[in-house]
Amino acid sequence: MEMNPSLFEGRLVRLTSVDPDKDAEIERKWTHDLEYLHMLTEQIAMPLSIFQIKKRYEKLEKEMEESGRQFYFAVRAKAAAGHESPDRLVGFVNLSWIEWSHGSGRLSLGIGSPQDRRRGYGTEALQLIMRYAFHELNLFRVEAAVPEYNRIALPFFAKSGFAEEVRQREALHRYGRRWDLVYMGLLSDEWEETRKTRDVNREA
């Protein structure tokens, strides 16, 4: 029998806790990228201060502790071997709205800076959080809510085996028109299947 010793570590990235003093300044910059915020949520996009972001971290950790229904990780790019520089914050992954009696959860993920996208960080963070959801939390399924205009996230989740399950018609109003809100879902046995295929491909 083989146990996976590194739940939080991949080849490129690591899932860690937040580090409020260092992370807040980096995340503050991300909040000036309104397009990034639009891609993530339906909430009103606006720049935040370091103070506001630190408050948000505090609320987040309090909520994680008290509700037991949320698991949030900072995604950090690992420093190259032999380098002294520490791991670098590149994004986040979050499992929330967990319903333990049903084994379900809501997934969200973001890579903050445009320079850090398309480098495999997001893909690897998604693999890690799915393994965490299905093999550590033993969830039955997870879903992600994606705005129709997010042309990156839809194929991103589809590639990892997520299927489109719901299309809330015209639920979003942005860029002068209406867009659907799409829900993509993945069941644990579907994930096990894609994992097997991936492992076979890796061996080949």
Partner: peptide
């Protein structure tokens, strides 16, 4: 009906879909 989150609920020993509905 706008779709369903497959088998989201577990009750009485089996799983059930969560159905989404909407009206414009």
């Amino acid at each position: 009906v706008e779709g369903k989150l497959r088998q989201l609920m577990r009750r009485d020993g089996r799983r059930w879909d969560l159905i989404f509905m909407g009206i414009l």
